[in-house]
């Protein structure tokens, strides 16, 4: 069983490295943001797996926090690159025209 767990952990690690490759290569900003977002999802899964490999399921608390921080940071990065500032209110309405053409 430990072997199976090690294989699964290794698979997640390999896919994290591949996703890092996409984040480095990605031609546009959005490829990179997508890669970082996916990277964080896999990191969270890896944290959970490591908790079980090491026999310390308390790692899941960190994974839970990671899931929340991942979402908030993705939204924050996208907001920053659309408005070039964190101080803009994200109210409804035709805000698309404010977006910088990239």
């Amino acid at each position: 069983m430990n072997l199976l767990l090690a294989i699964a952990t290794f698979g997640v690690l390999v896919s994290i490295s591949l996703m890092l490759l996409r984040a480095l290569l990605g031609p546009t900003l959005y490829d990179r943001v997508l890669a970082v977002n996916s990277f964080s999802t896999k990191t969270l899964l890896l944290l959970g797996m490591l908790g079980f490999v090491m026999g310390r399921p308390a790692f899941l608390d960190i994974a839970l926090l990671y899931a929340l921080i991942n979402f908030v940071s993705t939204i924050a990065i996208l907001k920053f690159f659309r408005y070039r500032s964190f101080q803009v209110s994200m109210a409804r309405g035709p805000v698309a025209s404010q977006g910088e053409e990239r």
Partner: peptide
């Protein structure tokens, strides 16, 4: 559980291959 984890890892790798 361990077998499902291996299956999940395989799916994760497949998704990443698609992204690349």
């Amino acid at each position: 559980g361990a077998l499902l984890c291996v299956l999940g890892a395989v799916l994760v790798v497949i998704g990443t291959v698609g992204v690349v």
